[in-house]
Design a protein around this nucleic acid. Structure first.
Lengths: 136, 136
DNA sequence: CTATATGAGTCTCAAAAAGAGACCAGCACT
DNA sequence: AGTGCTGGTCTCTTTTTGAGACTCATATAG
């Protein structure tokens, strides 16, 4: 585990030192991460990892997302190559969203993080309560 | 204690079945994930995983974050228990931020995701280019 | 025949969040 | 006396998000 952190350390050193070449602002990791670190992306990935869903199904599955943000988030996930969008010529045409291979590949590590969240929800909730208590 | 920790999959199944038991809106995973899935959290975690930093150091390390968002993101990370904030009584008082045990624990899976991003940056960039090409 | 519903969005407008940059305090150095 | 350093906060503007009406072609109900 320490070795992984060391590899990241050298990344940071490189970007820090890079007045001429690399800048942390242009970091490729940031470029990819910013596409999935928003309010709805991981939730939709989580849903689609289970099975493909249609637009309306996702909307009912995640009742507090607005249609506007559902459209936009799916569009962004599709653009980054995580999600495949397929239109079926039914009489009211239906659209199915599913994970691509790249999406399934990304969901591997994402799922680890989701599992951590599930396991440590209690610890985080306690930390919040303690912090809010000392703040008041 | 939270004895009712349910697996991610069964959460979804429960919602689909339409029973009154579980609602995805109150999902504990969402509660935790939304705290770290924003523009700056993972980046600051990445920096602090390397070593503790002071406020001004972080600001220089991430030059495109505003002081306002740096303050706020660090505050939120501290509230959730990932980051420890320590004030040193130097002559202009300095403040050091470091990861807590919980923070290091969370950075494990997060680091997997960051590594995935580093490895697959090319694939994502290509997907974007292809998508933008067919869109025009 | 008219009324209403459906699926997958788009459009508009209001609210919330983020970004830019000035300003604050105390102390050291010049 | 002026400047810089520290770690912020305050205010203002721009961007992003949310809420909700509207589209369009077809289907079914009354």
């Amino acid at each position: 585990m320490d070795s992984k952190i060391v590899s990241l350390r050298s990344k940071l050193e490189i970007y820090k030192a890079g007045s001429g070449g690399g800048n942390i602002v242009d970091c490729p990791v940031r470029d990819v991460i910013q596409g999935i670190s928003n309010k709805w992306s991981s939730l939709l990935m989580m849903a689609l990892a289970e099975k493909p869903y249609r637009f309306g199904e996702l909307r009912r599955l995640v009742p507090d997302i607005s249609q506007r943000m559902l459209t936009q988030t799916l569009h962004d996930l599709q653009r980054d190559g995580y999600v495949h969008r397929e239109v079926f010529p039914t009489k009211p045409p239906s659209v199915e969203y599913s994970l691509t291979d790249l999406g399934r590949s990304m969901f591997g590590p994402l799922h680890q993080l989701l599992q951590w969240a599930e396991l440590n929800h209690g610890a985080v909730r306690d930390a919040r309560a303690a912090f809010d208590a000392t703040e008041t």
